[in-house]
């Protein structure tokens, strides 16, 4: 059964890099927030928005086939995601997805 109280992480099955998903989920886990992985096809923003709508916490993450990562919030307009970034920033983006739920200031890259 799909857990409701979780950050929804929707990932395009075409994604090769396993590193990207590992970093992303590590970031969410370190902040102590539950997450749930599912696959779906599409662009990262589109996936993230749909994931956010499905998440009981209102936060979704989308990862496209090229490893672009996007964090969305259910209440934001669909074309205005909260955070976006490349696969190399997946760890910090994971932290920030979780922080949107926890309500603490986002991590800044290179800090």
């Amino acid at each position: 059964m799909t857990p409701v109280i979780a950050v929804m992480v929707w990932c395009d099955p075409g994604l090769r890099s396993r590193r990207c998903m590992r970093d992303l989920t590590a970031g969410i886990e370190e902040e102590g927030v539950p997450y749930h992985l599912e696959s779906g096809t599409g662009g990262s923003v589109e996936l993230a928005y749909a994931a956010a709508q499905a998440s009981g916490l209102g936060v979704g993450v989308g990862v496209d086939a090229d490893g672009n990562v996007c964090v969305h919030h259910a209440k934001l307009p669909s074309d205005m995601p909260a955070v976006t970034g490349p696969a190399s920033a997946a760890r910090i983006i994971g932290h920030n997805a979780a922080r949107l739920v926890v309500g603490v200031p986002l991590k800044q890259p290179d800090l």
């Binding site: 909260a82 955070v83 309500g103 200031p105």
Partner: peptide, 10 residues
């Protein structure tokens, strides 16, 4: 309009 992400929770 949504606030910028760098203001979130700050």
């Amino acid at each position: 309009d949504p606030l910028p992400a760098d203001a979130f929770a700050r």
